[in-house]
Design a protein around this nucleic acid. Sequence first.
DNA 1: CCCTGATTCGC
DNA 2: GCGAATCAGG
Length: 195
Amino acid sequence: MSWTDERVETLKKMWGEGQSASQIAKELGGVTRNAVIGKVHRLGLSNRAGSGGATAKAAPKEKPAAAAKPAPKPTPKAKPAPVPAVKEEPELDENGIPISAARRAIIPAGQPLPPQPSANEISPEALAKVNEVEKTAKKISLMELTEKTCKWPVGDPATEDFWFCGLAVKQGKPYCEAHVGVAFQPMSSRRDRRR
DNA sequence: CCCTGATTCGC
DNA sequence: GCGAATCAGG
């Protein structure tokens, strides 16, 4: 399979939508996630939303002792201020493609908020886990929610004693592992390996 | 162990 | 340019 115009287009679209490389690869077919990532890099669209602190860390390790590479590792860090102010950069693509970096507004202001586990019939095990998690939760605010933070609300939104879990989400889920467990019970354990 | 993206390097 | 292998992190 080669990177036809169409396939590249799909790649760009999905990547822009925040789809994972593996998902894109699966969609396109005939390529692996590595191929997708490689292409993404070659296209020059590495980072998605320039929000501070996604998964964009690189630690160049010199494993092969072939040639010495004086390649400097500029680690761009723009966070000297203790004030966690979110910067909104327009950020246009050099190719003229306006990156609609408004992916961060994932909060579907509506209903998708999960019900609080009150006296439901959830695995006592899962409940215990959630209880545990809520003690170690990051307790982030609404504005701090990202695609990668658990969006499980805790407490009463009408009071100050309200926050979101904020831990790292499981996979494509909106919640962390623990909360995923209590969020949706009924789910045929999908087991599909595609590789 | 599952996943994610990042980088390297032979092709 | 391509992507498997590898690496690094959650």
